[in-house]
Simulated scan of single mutants.
Amino acid sequence: MSRDVAIAGVGMHPWGKWGKNFVEYGVVAARAALADAGIPWPDVDLIVGGETVRNGYGGYVAGATFAQALGWNGARVATSYAACATGAQALDTARARILAGMSEVALVVGADTTPKGFLAPNAGERWDDPDWLRFRLLGMTNPAYFALYARRRMDLYGATSEDFAQVKVKNAKHGLSNPNARYRKEVAAHEVLESAIVADPLHLLDICATSDGAAAVVLCSVEYAQKLAQKHGSGDLVRIKAISTVTPTFPNTIIDMPLMSTDSSAVAGVPERTFKESIGDAAYEEAGISPEDVDVAEVYDLSTALELDWIEDLSLCKRGEAEQLLRSGDTTIGGRIPVNPSGGLACFGEAVPAQALAQVCELTWQLRGQAEGRQVEGARVGITANQGLFGHGSSVIVAR
């Protein structure tokens, strides 16, 4: 029995800082995905919403919120939350019901309206919540631990601030023609290096913004998609081959924080296995492919340095070789393994429940040959990577 499900349609609401209710964005993305699929709303029998914890009760019951906003049609609903990996877990919920024969057409939607500045835990005292504690006890915003990762790359592999700046330069160029990107402007390396230092060694332009936005994906059984293709005369199906949502394994896993040393002589060595590696490994195993089969990747560039980590975590190159790949142009469109042809979070910013879905949207357009102005020629296999706090990870593999 095939474990594949088909991506019938994808849609997005452009990222920005619009200040509207997140539901408005989600409805736009959902309707775009349904139109792309050529599937009428009444035919959808499952709606899965990505939870957004900053947007009140409607955000906590996002599946029902979007079902109501689109017009009650009697469909089943579900809501998923996994911090920044929310979209992938929502996809996995829909995929599971389709593969179980309990659903035929599922709409997955993620949307967010974010505050200005750093994302912070919700109000209230939660002494057993490590995310809350790092803010309360250490004043440690997200860029502070992005910087720890960056410093660790410098100590272990000789990465430089100039390398990090080149990631921003590359992604800014990729995002120029992306109509859904918030930032569509070329950036020079010196502009990155001259921007304010937020958390040493990271500058303001090394770190992604917080944004409003939405993404939606229509999934269906392969059999339904084949009938749909015959009806509309469309070509090869884009399929989800794997969704990895693994948790860490101890003791050979470093879950989130890197080694807190800025002295390379104190580093005991590279950990045997990291959580982020296991995310990719599980996806490859489920899909029955290897990293060599991947043509394009969309990874979670909360900071420029983290993109380099993800390239290695997904085994797209060996440990310590991501900088070499970047410098040679191999991660640029036209190179051996283009990374973030959408422009990544560098061009979009964070809209948490939509991020992992937006990555799948981009890969779908790439595999269809519809990524105008940023197309990776001949792309047939793509992989995503995303990590939410507290042991949430995700990787999605799509293929034609």
Rank of each mutant, 00 (worst) to 15 (best):
T384K: 05
R319L: 11
I207R: 02
L259G: 00
S221A: 04
V352E: 01
G233D: 11
L70A: 04
E323D: 13
A266F: 00
S103G: 07
R31Q: 15
R95M: 05
A75Y: 09
A225R: 11
L70E: 06
Q387M: 14
K241E: 08
N122L: 12
D313F: 02
A297G: 07
T141S: 15
H232E: 13
L363G: 03
W365I: 02
R54M: 07
N55K: 05
V48N: 02
S2E: 14
V169S: 12
G343K: 08
T249A: 15
R126K: 15
F348H: 07
A199M: 01
I47C: 03
G175V: 12
K318Y: 06
V296A: 12
A32C: 02
H174W: 01
K17N: 07
G349H: 09
V238H: 06
A181F: 11
A165M: 09
G235N: 14
F135I: 04
D313P: 06
E321S: 07
R327F: 12
I255E: 15
G117R: 09
Y60T: 06
G49I: 04
A75H: 10
F348A: 09
M12G: 03
L357A: 04
W132I: 01
V294P: 10
P42H: 09
R400A: 04
G19E: 14
L326Q: 11
L357C: 01
A37Y: 09
M260E: 14
K231Y: 04
A356Y: 02
A75E: 10
G9P: 05
Q387P: 00
A69M: 11
A90T: 01
G335P: 05
S177D: 15
G63I: 08
G19H: 13
D155Q: 08
D43I: 07
F164P: 00
V10N: 07
K185V: 08
S2G: 05
L107W: 12
L345C: 00
G391V: 07
R380D: 06
A305S: 14
K231L: 09
N55H: 08
A172I: 01
G344R: 06
K276V: 01
V339R: 02
T253G: 12
A287R: 01
N252S: 13
G349P: 00
L138C: 03
S303I: 06
G373H: 05
P115T: 09
G38M: 04
F22N: 05
L156A: 07
V222D: 10
G19T: 11
E186I: 05
G49T: 06
E321H: 10
A144E: 08
L133Q: 12
A78K: 08
V105I: 15
Q226Y: 04
G59E: 07
A225P: 03
A216R: 04
A385G: 15
R54S: 09
V360C: 04
E191N: 08
H203V: 12
G56F: 08
S265Y: 00
Y57K: 03
A356D: 04
A159M: 07
F22Q: 07
M1F: 00
T114N: 09
E350N: 10
D45R: 04
Y300T: 03
L302M: 14
T65R: 10
V5H: 03
A85H: 10
R380N: 06
A90E: 10
D131K: 05
N252R: 11
L99Y: 15
D281G: 00
T384C: 11
V108D: 10
V217W: 01
V105A: 03
V23W: 10
R151W: 03
A150V: 03
G329H: 08
R153D: 02
P353E: 15
G74C: 07
L367N: 10
G369E: 13
A96Y: 01
